[in-house]
Design a protein around this nucleic acid. Structure first.
Lengths: 347, 347
DNA sequence: TATCAACACGAAAACGTGATAGTGACCATC
DNA sequence: GATGGTCACTATCACGTTTTCGTGTTGATA
């Protein structure tokens, strides 16, 4: 349907060969100035642009990065994409996005659909189902076929590739230490099931920070978010109930650390409903980077994941691999600092 | 770098011609069963997948949709993308995303970069700067070159193409009527500059709803959000000041209608700070679909934009045009209903 | 005047695929 | 035994580029 002009058409129109036209446009000195001027003027007039698909085929690369993420309606992920997009554009790459919706099958299909030459490499964050299944063959095959992959945030150590993570454990420690330093004595934790790597690392940080302050780790103060096929609203309702129950059993809880934003907001909602004052009675810190924390009332103190920067870093790593600036045999794991952003839910 | 196997390599390996291999894989009955089985087994073993770039070149289409949006870290837009992605995948299309960051130049560059055969059509929401400049030549040229465009949400009537919008005026009226029906008498409006079409339509709805209830429209109750190159935080601070000022001048304001989420949240923050009770003293309704509204405390009553559905509808329209199911000469504007979601900031 | 270089351009191949149009070999029919 | 048809496969082209290798013409040099 597209009626864009091609080299062939220009050649025919000007009674020249395709090669001459091509060389003229690339300003080859094999071609006389007169001819070059003529061709260039003609091309400009008809708004000639080389067909990128033909170029891709010829150069055997697509100048495109495939991004596969669990969900896009999530500030963290969309912010990572913004970072990838920014860096990719700088280097002349395009970004194609596809969503796994946390599903293993979708992830497999997506990666296979894009691995047929459509993209030069992948940046991805592993779907929950995949982490649960521990089936990473699709990643391994892709890598075996010479296509580089960079994983960010939700990674697996079973696949040899470049990775970008934040220092989840250290970030969690920063959060817990902040709570301890502001006088909190009994800190509850809201976390995910262990198979989500980031969740378990943050849990580890929580435990370590407590131990370093000689506070015994009490498993009873931990709520693990169930996700057996519930939708988000149901999950939240369930979590809310768990929080109420926990607060009834342990009336001296004076702080919550939540490994993600929505949990923290849920904590805050419940806590405020029950008549506690935040942060006077109960402090809250979330692990996240989202808008909810920034604009909630009161605004949440958080551990920032630097999503945009993660995107930039991932894109840099991938492009270096694609352009063979870095050796494809060696893989690096880049750890980014998690920084504490103090807002209104801590003293 | 990619070492994916090609038809040629299979042919060489099996001492067959490329055509035979190709036909075998496509199960042509010109080829003997033995040969077909052999080739298919070989191809499967080496995980042959046709190179999509070659196919794109041959078929002169990319099976790819280009999406250009002002920003992705915005629940509305990322939700639209999720809708587009969902529908596109169903129909065998891929989605490449690029961001204009509200900049005219970036929008132009992005559309030109993708219009060289990389995509079969565009789904886009116009950048603010473009709306301000009123320079739509890049869209018109793209359409002239036979590439279909579907605009959603932020559209312009100066470009002839399919469009998907929500009924902004009607949505605004629903919101204002809800406020009136719950006893509000003096409703303030927080809106954008008029060049943002959706903003001005919502303003119109606000005015109409008032007039239909025989309430005089008072321009003094309207705050227009300035955006002369300020960053978001500065914008919000400024807006906050305007709200405080307005409330001082008009102490009997009992409701706010805000045309976007962040403004509404800002209103709520200021109002709560000043000691008003929401919704007892002041009701608030926002025009949006975001997480902030859903999870804010109290949760905001909103007019939903049905972002996901807009994405789906846009993708359907575009694919129909690409596949020439609908005539490229005729353009339809699809209006989606805006529905009121009652939460806790209205009585 | 034969030789050679510079000049200005064209032909052809390649990237990977799939469709159209051959091409031999074999068998059956009249 | 010439004709025709089926079978199983191959050659070629086209998609739009860029690049390598020609090639014919001109003018200068020995």
């Amino acid at each position: 349907m597209s009626n864009r002009i091609t080299l062939k058409q220009i050649a025919k129109e000007l009674n020249l060969s395709v090669s001459t036209v091509s060389k003229s446009l690339r300003n080859s000195r094999e071609i006389s100035t007169d001819t070059k001027n003529l061709v260039q003027a003609f091309a400009k007039f008809y708004n000639y642009k080389p067909n990128s698909i033909a170029l891709n085929l010829r150069n055997r690369k697509s100048k495109t990065i495939g991004v596969i993420i669990p969900e896009i309606t999530h500030y963290f992920f969309s912010n990572v994409i913004a970072g990838i997009d920014s860096e990719a554009n700088k280097k002349g790459y395009r970004v194609v996005v596809s969503l796994s919706n946390e599903s293993f099958d979708t992830e497999v299909v997506n990666i296979e659909t894009l691995a047929n030459g459509s993209v030069d490499g992948f940046i991805l964050s592993v779907a929950k189902e995949t982490l649960l299944n521990k089936d990473y063959h699709h990643f391994k095959e892709t890598i075996n076929q010479g296509m580089p992959i960079v994983m960010f945030d939700r990674i697996t150590n079973e696949v040899a590739c470049d990775k970008v993570i934040i220092d989840d454990k250290e970030g969690a420690k920063k959060a817990v230490n902040k709570l301890l330093n502001t006088g909190c004595k009994k800190i509850a934790l809201v976390t995910t099931e262990d198979y989500v790597t980031v969740g378990s690392l943050r849990t580890k940080g929580y435990i370590e920070a407590l131990e370093e302050s000689n506070i015994a780790y009490d498993p009873n103060l931990v709520i693990k978010i169930q996700d057996q096929g519930l939708n988000k609203d149901e999950e939240i309702t369930l979590l809310g109930q768990s929080i109420v129950k926990l607060l009834h059993q342990h009336r001296d809880i004076d702080a919550f650390f939540a490994v993600n934003e929505l949990s923290a907001i849920t904590v805050m909602k419940v806590v405020l409903d029950l008549g506690y004052k935040v942060p006077e009675d109960i402090s809250i810190i979330a692990f996240t980077d989202g808008v909810l924390s920034k604009y909630s009332i009161p605004a949440l103190t958080t551990v920032s994941q630097h999503a945009f920067e993660m995107g930039v870093a991932s894109a840099k790593l991938l492009i270096d691999k694609i352009e063979e600036i870095t050796n494809s045999e060696f893989h690096i794991t880049q750890t980014m600092d998690a920084t504490l952003i103090e807002r209104q839910t801590t003293k």
